[in-house]
Simulated assay, not measured.
Amino acid sequence: MINPHWLQSFRALAEQGSFTRAADALGLTQAAVSQHVRFLEDQYGLLVVRKSRPLELTPIGQELLCYALELSEADARFQHRLNLSDSLEGEVSLITPGSSGLLIYPALLALQQQHPGLVIRHRFAPDQEVLQAVLNNQYELGLLTFAPQDKRLKAQAIAEEPLELVHPRGTRVKEWQDLVELGFIDHPDGRAMADKLLSRHFPGQPGAATLPSKGYSNQVSLLLEPVARGLGFTILPRYARQAFLRQDEIAVCQCQRPVVDTLWVIHRAEWPLPRRCQWVLDTMKNCLTH
């Protein structure tokens, strides 16, 4: 690799047209600049025709000057990328469960409206996919409903999310038979969530597997639509219920022994979050805790 000090002296000589002016521009002696150029010529051949005024570069000297300019441009691009890590502009990649994602999504859109230079790439996914996506550096930030044990991740508890039994407004849920008559609106995690919550609220009952199915959806944003229309009940995290627009058409059964998940934000532990990621994280915390 070419000595950067020698290359700097040569570039100054090419731009200034004389050893004197090059030395003045660099704050060096003329002898130092001359020595640096001589070292380069020993390695690459004649670079400068010294008899001409101003000095003239040989073909090899022109090639070396192009190389010096390319290095300078590459250095400028590198510095720009480093500065972006402290910028509020650029992309933030985020992957979350659907329930919390539904609640924070409007707040993130509002953040982008206020700051057009910010771009948020947001994906909804189950816990295990969130975990792997952050570990594989596909997303910078993730939300989990459990604390990860992988030492490559840094995890911070930011909110709590209870499970809720949601039924149509105007119906009653007092006994197990009420659930049987309503029927269950299922989803990918529905039976597991139902078993956790119903075993506390209705101890001794046969469990969610015995409840009649009245529908299924793998889209958490659509899950409460059949409930609002009176087709059955479901069990889902509170943030998904809060994101539903027609709250006057649904009701929540108050459980004496709630099931509460802690939400953990995760990112790779080896490097600090860019400033814009921290900005998005603060918005998420504010949305989930108010």
Rank of each mutant, 00 (worst) to 15 (best):
R169M: 05
E70A: 03
R172Q: 06
Q149Y: 01
R241I: 06
A147T: 08
K285I: 14
E129C: 08
D42N: 12
D150P: 06
Q114D: 15
A12N: 07
K196E: 15
S18N: 09
T96V: 15
K51D: 15
A74E: 13
W176T: 15
H122C: 02
L182V: 05
V48S: 12
H5R: 13
I185Q: 11
L163R: 06
I60V: 15
L28I: 08
P237I: 01
V227L: 00
S87F: 00
H187P: 05
L28M: 14
Y216P: 01
A147Y: 05
R246N: 13
L55F: 08
D282L: 02
L135P: 12
A159F: 02
Q247S: 11
L13W: 07
A209N: 08
R50N: 07
L47P: 08
A269R: 14
L281T: 11
A194F: 04
L223Y: 05
H115L: 10
F124S: 07
N286R: 09
L88K: 05
E161Y: 01
L141E: 12
Q254Y: 00
W264D: 13
A269P: 05
N136A: 15
T171V: 00
L245N: 08
Q35K: 14
P226G: 07
L198F: 03
F10L: 12
F146L: 10
H115G: 06
L141Q: 09
W176C: 07
C255F: 00
A107F: 06
L143M: 13
Y44P: 01
L223C: 06
T58H: 13
A31Y: 08
A269W: 02
S18V: 08
R275Q: 15
Y216C: 04
